[in-house]
Simulated scan of single mutants.
Amino acid sequence: MCAMRFAPSQLVVSLSYDLNNPIKIRAKHKVAGMLLLDRDHANRLERGWNVPGAYILLDRPDPQGRWGAYIGKATNPGLRHRVLQQLKDRDHWYRALLIRYESNEDETLNSSEAGWLEGKLYNHLHRARQVTLHNRNRPQDPTLTDDDETSLIDYLLPIESVLRLIGHTLYPRPAGAPDGGGPLVKRIKPRPEANKPVPHLSLPGPTPNTSPPSDPAKEVKEIIAQIEAGTFVYRAPQCR
């Protein structure tokens, strides 16, 4: 049985001044190189990405945070060729997340490693309650040595972290979350300061009064009696 390493890793995100360029993402101290590619800019993908790897075609999340995806792999000629082909074959996706080996420019994932990664991503997203997969068939798992599987496991957690970073979570927010599982922004009502009386409207004008009347009904009756007797004098509130 292969050992599993799920140590957290930092994500390094590279943004270009040209908004039309893809977003490059890599996991620090890991071997996975990732690229977040907008569909409209797929034709700008560098030829350096024509290497074996795996990819995820992403649908936009709906208001409940659910989203669709297609998991694929590329061997030869590589990821760039496969993504350009998916522009014609599939119209549901708006972004693609590309994954390749990046520690050494002279090495790439082989066909079996790309297939293993494709299968593990399929299993992972298939179990997620927020995701609907467009794959018709489950990818086949190639046979790898324990050492090869152990090295490829390092790809999985950074990929999930990137999906979360771009708003594609795998599971619904629990009801016990700090925001109650609802919107991240809530309207907060201001609370009165401690030991400070709440101002109220005094009769007959709206002048703030820090001492609430002991018997508001009695004051109203007195004003009514003064009006009936013709002795009521209205005093306008003074501005300070």
Rank of each mutant, 00 (worst) to 15 (best):
D62T: 01
V31M: 12
E107Y: 14
A32Y: 00
D106A: 14
A96H: 09
N50V: 03
L36A: 01
D91F: 12
G53C: 11
K88D: 02
A69C: 11
T108R: 15
A42K: 08
N50D: 08
S103W: 13
R47P: 02
R39V: 00
G65K: 09
P22C: 06
H29M: 05
R100I: 06
S111Q: 09
W93F: 15
L109Q: 09
I99W: 14
L45M: 10
M34Y: 04
L57Y: 06
A114C: 13
D40S: 10
E113L: 09
Q64D: 01
L117G: 07
S112N: 14
A96E: 03
R39Y: 00
L58F: 10
P61C: 08
L98W: 11
S103R: 15
E46N: 08
E102R: 15
G53R: 11
N21R: 07
A114Y: 11
A114M: 13
R95Q: 09
V83I: 15
T108K: 15
K73E: 01
A42D: 04
R66G: 01
I23E: 00
H41F: 07
D91C: 11
L98I: 11
Y94P: 02
R60E: 00
K88E: 04
G48V: 01
P52V: 05
N76Y: 09
K73Q: 06
L58G: 08
I23A: 03
E107W: 13
L109I: 08
H81T: 07
D89A: 15
D89K: 15
W49I: 01
G53L: 12
Q86C: 12
N43D: 00
L19R: 08
Q86S: 12
I25G: 05
L37N: 02
E105R: 14
R47W: 02
P52L: 08
R47A: 03
L117E: 04
R82C: 05
K88V: 01
E113Q: 13
A54W: 05
L36R: 02
A114I: 12
L57I: 04
A96D: 05
G65P: 07
L84G: 03
S112V: 13
H81F: 09
G115Q: 10
L117T: 03
L97N: 07
L109C: 12
Q85L: 10
K28E: 00
I99T: 10
L58K: 09
L84Y: 06
S112L: 15
D38G: 13
R44N: 02
T108V: 14
R95T: 00
R82W: 06
S111V: 05
R60S: 03
R26H: 03
Q86L: 13
R82H: 04
L87W: 04
H29L: 07
K28I: 00
I23P: 05
P77A: 07
I25F: 09
Y94H: 10
E107M: 14
W67Q: 07
N20I: 00
Y70K: 11
G78Q: 06
